[in-house]
């Protein structure tokens, strides 16, 4: 009776230690290139084609992707391709003239002939309509970024999966933004 149990325990012990060492082996194998911090997801603005999926595919509603404004790039135009609809009737703040569907861009007069454009992130849904307009007709200072105060950092980012241009990738948590710089820095963000 006791002998039988001993044999069982012996086999169990052998299996336990071989599983343990196997596990340690796998861990040791990957341990050589672990990183201390987590990864977070970010959009490369130079790859982004402003397709609009960020607004619809993020697990959050509204999306954690927002439009950000690189002021250093902006031409402060009166005729702003990101603010005004193509074919707008007049250059004022009337709803029918505006490109943004949620009125999330605030236009402020600075001095003749310059206007400042500011994104109100609480209203922005990340639809990239303004990004498209700004890139097509302007300097490309408006671009999308994942906002990390909102992002829940899913293990598998739902918008990265559907991004048609593979613009979303993991970046180190310590340096979580790819905000466009100004022209002096070139395309190096």
């Amino acid at each position: 009776m006791t002998k039988r149990i001993d044999r069982r325990n012996f086999i169990r012990g052998c299996a336990r230690y071989s599983l343990g060492f196997g596990l340690a082996g796998v861990v040791g194998f990957v341990a050589k290139d672990t990183i201390a911090g987590e990864w977070v997801w970010q959009i490369d603005p130079f790859k982004c084609t402003s397709c609009g999926r960020c607004a619809t595919h993020c697990v959050l509603n509204p999306s954690a992707v927002k439009c950000v404004h690189a002021y250093a790039l902006c031409g402060y135009c009166d005729l702003c391709g990101g603010y005004l609809k193509p074919g707008h009737i007049s250059r004022d703040t009337a709803a029918e003239n505006m490109l943004c569907p949620t009125d999330a861009i605030k236009r402020k007069y600075v001095e003749e002939p310059y206007y400042e454009y500011k994104i109100i992130e609480e209203l922005c849904i990340g639809c990239a309509k303004c990004v498209k307009g700004c890139s097509a007709f302007g300097n490309g200072s408006l671009h999308l970024q994942i906002r990390h105060d909102l992002c829940v950092n899913c293990n598998e980012c739902a918008i990265a999966r559907v991004c048609p241009s593979d613009a979303i990738s993991r970046v180190p948590k310590t340096d979580p933004y790819l905000i466009k710089g100004d022209f002096n820095k070139g395309e190096d963000v």
């Binding site: 031409g75 001095e111 498209k132 302007g138």
Partner: peptide, 19 residues
């Protein structure tokens, strides 16, 4: 080309006010 470019179509303004 248009969609990806960061082009300086409009130069950065030189503000006269204290902006």
């Amino acid at each position: 080309f248009i969609a990806h470019a960061q082009q300086q179509r409009f130069p950065k303004p030189e503000f006269e006010t204290e902006y």
